[in-house]
Design a protein around this nucleic acid. Sequence first.
RNA 1: GGUCCCAUCGUCUAGUGGCCCAGGACGCUGGCCUCUCACGCCGGAAACACGAGUUCGAACCUCGUUGGGACCA
Length: 463
Amino acid sequence: MVKTRFAPSPTGNLHIGGARTALFNYLFSKHKGGTFVLRIEDTDIERSKEVYVQDILQGLGWLGIDWDEGPHFQKERMDIYREHAYRLLREGCAYKCYCTPEMLEEKRKVALKEGKKPTYDRTCRDAHDRASDMPHVIRFKAPLTGEVSFNDLVRGTISFRCEELDDLVILRSDSTPTYNFTVVVDDALMGITHIIRGDDHINNTPRQILIYRALNYPMPEFAHVPLIHGKDRSRLSKRHGATSLLEYRNEGFLPEALMNYLARLGWAHGDQEIFSREGLIEMFDLPNVGKSPAIFDMDKLLWLNGHYIKTLPLEDVAERLVPFLEGLGLAISNREMLVPITANLKGRARTLKEMAQMAAFFFLDDVAYEEAAKQKFLTPATKPILENFLEGFKGLRSIDEDEQKRLIENMARDYNTKLVNVIQPIRVSLCGRTVSPGIFEVIGILGRETVEKRLRRAIEAIS
RNA sequence: GGUCCCAUCGUCUAGUGGCCCAGGACGCUGGCCUCUCACGCCGGAAACACGAGUUCGAACCUCGUUGGGACCA
């Protein structure tokens, strides 16, 4: 039975990179019919914040990555880590180290000066007075020679020489456990079979393997996926605007689009670009994950988001649009208009936020005219066009597209001009700007009364 | 600096020795459609980092170089 986990530290928001790691774990476990665990690694009391925990939980929930088990909190498991540390001590796999920070700093300087590596010199490793109650840390006793290697599911065999590894601290002098120790204890106890994480952890892996062995717990599989990079090719961080996932939600992205994008970033299944959640679960597997870091590309995300806006059920998109309209302070007087408006705008907007902005004029009878549009199309010269149109419009038997079109075509003929010259003044009158959906559709949605009202207002605005 | 990892169009990638003088997608660009703007459709430019080697044959295998990244300090 496959079991994966996502184990973020609540020291920051859940950003794109973390979300992708979570997604890969989620997809892999579902693909294999296994379970997915969420664990919050909040042992760093200083930097861990409840708001970040909430951000992570909400972000995952919004994306639609739900966990089968957890969230577990490491803070609540401190005793377990201590027990394990003392067990290693008892069994001779660890030792108490009484070196003070000052001593260590001194040794580091000396080593550096002599051109040696600044690793711990193992002074206390073979000392005998282990009963002392003086302040001490507990260090893991790493093998002095040999090699640690593992088969990474995305990279293949990776090996490290033990000479490179030093005796890392597993329990600090204040009795708090360190990162490399807690992960191993938790992953082992929770029965995690596949550890899928960012490749910034590759260097931690050999130490962790050694701890697994010392603890005599079954070894999981490892898969290190490349990090997502910013445009400057360095790891995505705050200065790239690596903000919360929820930020994407607020900007009007759809979780379907983001999931699709994240999955395709560093993973592919032939030439296919569009994947539903179900499709991803069916197709996703580790061997297809790329080895090199990927750069986040907003343009492609926008394109995908536009694709989902176009293809998701209209009613659904309309429903999701509402909060964005409200966000603009618009009173949605007529909910009947929502679906037709969505149908109109879905081909033009790439985000829900954009769509709301484009839709604003539908809800505002006293729509503001863009200055340039007004200068050009609401002038004494176009006034008669608007007056004639209003007159003709009132006499229309119905306002379906054919009727409207006939009226405007006749006018264009009378004025001996092109359709566009008749339409633009009308468009500005109704929408306040020169860009909008097709004018016949706009009129159809607005309805007789509103159209007449807005035309009159525009005519007045000229004089 | 040490260790480890990576390397196909600007970007995401397909490609696992002959199907590739390299395919798809975003972006860019020319055109069509058209009441504006989009959508859509048709077309175009654009890449195997470099050098050796293995082989009848290399984007694919090996070595080196260069470049990039991560971690540690």
